[in-house]
Nucleic acid binder design. Structure first.
Length: 405
DNA sequence: CGAGATTCATGTGAAGTATACCTTTAGGCTTAA
DNA sequence: AAGCCTAAAGGTATACTTCACATGAATCTCGTA
């Protein structure tokens, strides 16, 4: 009986006209044929990088802009084309893109160099070797034959925040050690004031060219959405006002185009799942919830156990005791944390370390933690959840599962 | 009443430790001439 | 004697701990008006 039902379901699914023609064009890593509202930036990047085709080292570039303002997209767009031309003309050009935020991949000097070396097809151990050794290995690989390397470091501010600007210094100086090859560095940062704390030597050599990506406004977002929607959906499936609403939502959050596109895509998926033949405005609201939830859950899940446990403790303190938005403090959390450690057989870390973990959770945007002085009553972090209440229980479950509680 | 000293709870920096992993080296064993 | 394997020695990166000092506004203290 159950089987029959399922059969019917699949049959119906097949007969139904799909909403999507090409879902890919709404996905994050998709590079469209044209990038509207970013002509200036693209031209500038192209202008800077073009000398590479004559085997001259392009200037280093520094790019600022909030998330979803098209930084990665434009870089991708330009470098892809550059690479094509280079291949056609047999120019030895290599482009490496690295996101420095990725835990355990490129978040320390050693790991960054190791990852770069791996890009040349050389396996390097995750630990054990001196960083210097890896550096030499990388230089050797790079200098084996004439090559222009364009190194794109995304979210470079995170890296510097964690490990200081020593890496950038070595990287900007690497050209002096190379005989055949040359390296151009493109740094991407969300943080506009981050450069000010850099060693002046690094600063000047890294930002030979600077480029700012302003946020998209609602009108621009609309046109982007329309362009992509045309590729993604069949013609009649969008209810009036859907695009406008997506754009408005995203404009509200510093013009984040990635978010707008995701909103539209997820709304489509929800509509499809509900057997609706149109994407309606209410689907967007559902989509917004779902995206927030999924993003946080994914982020939470990729954290190490101790981070999860710390977050779990924060969640518990927030929900149980003084729930209604009252801030909570490091001390409270550490107490609960210790208890929770007993609960799941994990060895408790020191408060010192937990304090650092809380700071990192703050950096990730899962919580808001602010150092406040409470006068006579000491000094502590004031911690608030940065995730919507509706998703808290779900995340709590995810954490419990991950910790075996 | 107000200026300065005190105080609390924890932030924060530096140095040390444990662990996991790496390469090098020396010793011991096997093998083949 | 040469070749190969193994274990010890000596090294590193990373996550964490230990120690010690820094912070900064509420509160206290005490001199002065």
């Amino acid at each position: 009986m159950q089987q029959k039902e399922l059969d019917g379901f699949f049959e119906k699914f097949l007969k139904k006209e799909p909403l999507f023609i090409n879902k890919r064009s709404l996905q994050g890593n998709y590079t469209p044929k044209t990038v509207p509202h970013r002509e200036d930036q693209i031209n500038q990047i192209a202008g800077v990088l073009a000398p590479a085709l004559r085997m001259e080292k392009p200037s280093n570039v520094f790019i600022y802009g909030k998330t979803g303002t098209g930084k990665s997209l434009c870089i991708n767009y330009v470098t892809n084309n550059l690479l094509l031309t280079a291949e056609r003309n047999k120019i030895p050009l290599k482009i490496i893109y690295l996101n420095c935020k990725l835990k355990r991949i490129a978040d320390t000097e050693y790991r960054l160099m190791a990852q770069l070396t791996r890009e040349f097809g050389v396996e390097v151990p995750a630990t054990g070797l001196p960083t210097e050794e890896i550096y030499k290995l990388f230089v050797k690989q790079l200098d084996k034959e004439k090559l222009l390397l364009v190194l794109i470091l995304d979210e470079i501010d995170q890296l510097v925040h964690k490990t200081g600007d020593g890496i950038l210094y070595t990287l900007t100086r690497i050209n002096t050690e190379l005989k055949n090859s040359e390296v151009t560095i493109i740094g991407i940062s969300n943080d506009l004031i981050f450069v000010d704390n850099l060693d002046p030597r690094v600063k000047s050599s890294l930002s030979e060219e600077e480029l700012v990506f302003p946020p998209y406004n609602a009108i621009q977002l609309q046109s982007i959405l329309k362009q992509r929607a045309k590729e993604a959906f069949r013609e009649t499936v969008l209810e009036d006002g859907v695009i406008e609403k997506c754009a408005a939502y995203a404009a509200r959050e510093h013009g984040d185009a990635r978010r707008a596109l995701e909103l539209l895509r997820v709304a489509g998926e929800i509509a499809e799942r509900n057997n609706d033949n149109k994407i309606r405005i209410k689907h967007i609201d559902d989509a917004e919830d779902k995206i927030d939830r999924d993003r946080v859950i994914e982020q939470v899940n990729s954290q190490p156990k101790q981070f999860k446990l710390t977050l779990y403790s924060i969640l518990n303190v927030c929900m149980n005791g003084n729930s209604n938005g009252n801030p909570i403090f490091t001390g409270d959390i550490y107490e609960i944390y210790r208890e929770a450690c007993n609960g799941c057989g994990l060895k408790p870390l020191t408060q010192r370390r937990v304090s650092d973990i809380i700071a990192e959770l703050d950096m990730l945007g899962i919580i808001n933690a602010r150092v406040v002085s409470k006068g006579r009553y000491g000094r502590t972090r004031e911690i608030k959840l940065a995730i919507p209440d509706s998703t808290v229980p779900k995340i709590n479950n995810v954490l419990k599962e991950g910790l075996g509680l």
